[in-house]
C-alpha cells in the first residue's frame, strides 16, 4: 500500500511520549521494553491490574498531525451500550468485566472452525502503535494512540475459503457482567461487519491497548476492532466471535435504524445523517470556546482507502 507522506507524520514529531508518561517513567519503560519479550503475556496478575503497561510494541509510521486526546477523556467518554447508554456509564459499569481468559471463535467460510485465545492471537504479529483519528457518528472525534496487530494477520491465520466475502464481528453479551444487555436497547449481541477487502486493509487493526497500556474495559477490552475511516460504531468491542460469511451481514445498528446506519458507515461530510450534520465535528479535548473542525472524507484517510469504493454511490451505500 502506498502511504502518503504528507498525511502521515512520524509519531515522534507529533506528541512526545514524555508529555503523557513523564520523562522518568518514559526512560524506565523504554529500558524495560528493550529487555521484555516482544509481546506481553496475559497472566492473571496483569489483567487484574487494569492500568498495566503494555510493553514491547513498536511505533509505526501511522500517525496524524493532530494532538492526542487525553487518556482521561479517551477512557471516560465512551459509547458502549452493553454498559449503559450514557457516555460516563462504561467507565463506571465495566470495572468487573473479566477479560482473561478470553477466546475468540472463528467460524463460517473457513477451512475449519477454530478458536484462538488472546495470548496466541498476540503472537500472530508484533504489536504496533497506531495513532488514529476516531470520528463518532454523533459528531465528535478523538485522536487515540491504539496498540494492536493488523486484522489481516488474524484473517490469514483463520484461513477463509473463497466463499468468504464479508466478516461479521460479534461482541460479548453477558447479562451477568453487562447491565446494558439486560435492556433491549439494541439487538444483542452487538454485531458489526466489514467487507473482506476492508478487513484486510492495512489500516484495519485489532486493538489490545491504548496509550501504552492494556485496553481499559470501557474501551472494549481485551480486543476490539479499529477501522479509522469509518464511524466509531463500526469498531466492535470485546469481540468473542469472528464469522466469515458470503453475504453482507446485518449489523446491530442497521437493525436499530435502517435509515440512519448503513453497512459501510464511511466517514463522509457530504452524506448527512438524518439527525446530525456530518460536515463538521467537535474534537474532544477543546474547552467551551473551541470551534468545530471540518470533517474530512473517509476521516482523512481517503488517500489510503478511497480506491476500495471507486464507482460506488456513497450516498446510497451510506
Amino acid at each position: 500500500m502506498k502511504i502518503n507522506n504528507s498525511e502521515i507524520i512520524p509519531v515522534s514529531e507529533i506528541t512526545p511520549y514524555e508529555t503523557y508518561m513523564g520523562r522518568r517513567d518514559f526512560i524506565k519503560a523504554a529500558s524495560a521494553a528493550l529487555m521484555a519479550a516482544p509481546f506481553l503475556s496475559f497472566n492473571s496478575e496483569v489483567s487484574a491490574a487494569t492500568n498495566a503497561s503494555l510493553l514491547g510494541y513498536t511505533k509505526s509510521p501511522y500517525g496524524a498531525d493532530e494532538k492526542l486526546t487525553s487518556y482521561n477523556e479517551v477512557t471516560n467518554y465512551n459509547n458502549y451500550y452493553e454498559f449503559g447508554t450514557s457516555k460516563s456509564d462504561p467507565a463506571l459499569e465495566s470495572k468487573g468485566l473479566v477479560t482473561h481468559p478470553w477466546t475468540v471463535s472463528i467460524e463460517g467460510a473457513v477451512k475449519k472452525n477454530k478458536q484462538i485465545n488472546l495470548d496466541d492471537l498476540l503472537k500472530l504479529a508484533p504489536l504496533e502503535e497506531r495513532i488514529y483519528r476516531m470520528r463518532c457518528v454523533e459528531g465528535w472525534s478523538m485522536v487515540i494512540p491504539w496498540i494492536g496487530i493488523p486484522m489481516s494477520k488474524l484473517i490469514q491465520w483463520a484461513e477463509p475459503t473463497s466463499n468468504a466475502k464479508f466478516i461479521e464481528f460479534v461482541s460479548l453479551a453477558d447479562q451477568s457482567q453487562m447491565p446494558g444487555v439486560r435492556t433491549n436497547i439494541l439487538d444483542w449481541p452487538y454485531t458489526e461487519g466489514l467487507r473482506m477487502d476492508e478487513a484486510m486493509h492495512p489500516l484495519t487493526i485489532i486493538a489490545v491497548g491504548l496509550y501504552g497500556k492494556l485496553l481499559p474495559n470501557q474501551n472494549g477490552a481485551p480486543l476490539r476492532l479499529v477501522v479509522p475511516w469509518k464511524y466509531g460504531f463500526k469498531n466492535a468491542k470485546s469481540i468473542v466471535k469472528i464469522r466469515f460469511v458470503e453475504s453482507m451481514p446485518k449489523t446491530s445498528w442497521m437493525k436499530a435504524g435502517p435509515k440512519e446506519y448503513g453497512f459501510y458507515a464511511n466517514v463522509n461530510p457530504m452524506v448527512d445523517h438524518p439527525r446530525w450534520t456530518q460536515s463538521t465535528e467537535r474534537r474532544i479535548g477543546g474547552g467551551l470556546f473551541t470551534p468545530r473542525i471540518k470533517t474530512k472524507l473517509f476521516n482523512g484517510y481517503a488517500e489510503q482507502v478511497a480506491h476500495m469504493y471507486a464507482g460506488m454511490d456513497l450516498v446510497k451505500n451510506f
Binding site: 471516560n76 457516555k87 465528535w140 467551551l288
Partner: peptide
C-alpha cells in the same frame, strides 16, 4: 463546573 473545568470531555454538549 465550568470554572473548575469539570464539565466533562464534551463541555459544550454538557451545557
Amino acid at each position: 463546573l465550568g470554572i473548575n473545568d469539570a464539565l466533562g470531555a464534551n463541555p459544550i454538549e454538557t451545557v
